[in-house]
Amino acid sequence: MNIFRFAGDMTHLISILVLLLKIYATKSCSGISRKTQELYALVFLARYVDIFTEFISVYNTIMKIVFIASTLAIVWCMRGHRVVRRSYDKELDTFRHYFLIAASLVLALLVHEKFTFQEILWAFSIYLEAVAILPQLVLLQRSGNVDNLTGQYVFFLGAYRGLYILNWIYRYFTEPHFSRWIACVSGLVQTALYADFFYYYFLSWKNNAKLKLPA
């Protein structure tokens, strides 16, 4: 464990806490893409299938449980909660995310570290996570001005993978035979997708203005 990875995990945790706060405090999920939440639930379920077989550390197991449970809770809340689901922007959240699932699955079958069930599921979760934010970014562009908590949620979610890239660079230079090129290339793509969001987020912070993504 290094500071970059720990900071990345904490940033990821903060993004989930901010999202939970937004939904709990405002009893609304307006501006949040349910499709992105469903894709993230799939990412965690596919990536953490080894939670019961491979024990890495207490921290690792607890964080996996927190990520799976919180994301499933958010999806349930957006689908089933009487009050919250009424504020879901159903007509704006129209990204065809099934294509993202299919493309990630095909790519995982073609490009993986080993042709085993677990490795292919892991590669699938890595590729899917890289594109999982797309429905959310499209929804932000369509829904005009973005409320602060939603903006902060997306910001922390994008920042965490950027910190992971620093972690991979650090491990590359400090650990012999460290190679994680699938996660690294995918992480670069994932972080690059946030580039324009980060730009407008920075502008809104600098000008102390409301965050607004151009349509």
């Binding site: 990875r5 995990d9 990821h12 080894d50 491979e54 890495i56 690792n60 964080m63 996996k64 990520f67 570290e113 892991w122 992971y164 972690n167 994680r180 996660a183």
Partner: peptide, 10 residues
């Protein structure tokens, strides 16, 4: 057990 080392991240 390089398998564990390669999947020690979240």
């Amino acid at each position: 057990r390089s398998q564990d080392a390669s999947k020690d991240e979240l």
